[in-house]
């Protein structure tokens, strides 16, 4: 096989690979168009969508960045700490409420008694490797809270940014 033929064959394979990827991307966009629209427009991630037969629900908590958490600190927004009570006691975001993942049955009930469902909530836990904030946010949305957002950077990002922390710090 000549070098020229090999080069042409490789070029054709590359074109084929790109075509496959393109077709797959089109399928992916079509299948996930509603999800992507909500995410990329950043509007109604925590809205509840119902399928045609009215049976399926998709609940997606809205993300929030560190800068916005800082801005919302003095507003009516309530911060929810999804970490354990021990971790909460060692240090947490100012004015945050402890609602450990795993104790949400009693915790959500107590929260509902004190915080109206229309109140914006921001849930956080131990950073990007922690999924408790996302899981708790879904539970809170299911419980009726209409504006639930997750601060993915969580306590580590807040602390590492040198921002004030409440609780017993070492």
């Amino acid at each position: 096989m000549s070098k020229e033929f090999k080069g042409r064959a490789l070029w054709q394979d590359l074109q084929g690979a790109l075509l496959i990827a393109l077709l797959a991307v089109v399928v992916g966009l079509a299948v996930n168009s509603q999800l992507l629209w909500r995410v990329l427009s950043g509007q109604t991630l925590n809205s509840v969508t119902t399928s045609v037969d009215g049976s399926t629900e998709t609940i997606l908590p809205l993300p929030v960045e560190l800068a916005e958490v800082r801005e919302l600190q003095d507003s009516t927004t309530v911060l929810i700490d999804a970490r354990s009570q021990t971790a909460f006691a060692e240090g947490h975001l100012p004015a945050a409420r402890s609602l450990p993942r795993g104790e949400e049955v009693a915790g959500v009930g107590a929260l509902q008694a004190e915080v109206p469902l229309s109140t914006p909530l921001i849930v956080y836990c131990s950073g990007y490797d922690c999924s408790d904030s996302f899981a708790l946010a879904e539970i809170l949305i299911t419980a009726g809270y209409q504006q639930v957002r997750i601060f993915e950077g969580g306590f580590p990002e807040w602390r590492d940014a040198g921002l004030p922390v409440e609780g017993a710090q070492p």
Binding site: A21, A24, V25, G28, L29, L35, L36, L40, P63
Partner: peptide
């Protein structure tokens, strides 16, 4: 912690279909 938050969703929505097709 490489991509902006929204792009994570874009990758997550498209990559599985490329893997599946291949």
């Amino acid at each position: 912690q490489v991509l902006p938050y929204q792009l994570n969703f874009l990758v997550a929505a498209l990559l599985p279909y490329v893997e599946l097709a291949a």
